[in-house]
Amino acid sequence: MNDAPKPGATTATPGEAAPLVPELLISDLLRYGVLASLSLVTLGTLVTFFRHPDYLVSSEALERLTAPHPVPHGLADVVAGALAARGQSFVMAGLLVMMAVPVTRVALSLLIFRQQRDRLYVVITTVVLALLLVSFLLGAAEG
């Protein structure tokens, strides 16, 4: 009796068209996206300290690192840095993956609403996606 399935926890009942699949898809996307991002950030941090042994002893290096200074903020810079195996670029790539997780979630929702033929929500979701893209583009234009 304790094992009685609660609605939503198990597979769809016959007659209903698997209402759970969109929720599961979104949930998995969020979970694995965050995991991938955090792995990249951790890996990048380890590479950074491995390549800069002076970071372990010198306190001058910290001033360079925390004072206002240019950081890679173009997609091209980050990719180039990651290819050159620079630790901080790996960290940045991880942070970019993190930023991409919610954007991908909205894109996935758009596909789901389209499949459900929910016109109103296709429009609403498209607006949200457009605003997200505008934020990246406008920020780049301003910077």
Binding site: L95, M99, S135, F136, L138, G139, E142
Partner: peptide
């Protein structure tokens, strides 16, 4: 975050 990233 998109704006902050672009701004460095």
């Amino acid at each position: 975050a998109g704006v902050y990233f672009a701004r460095g």
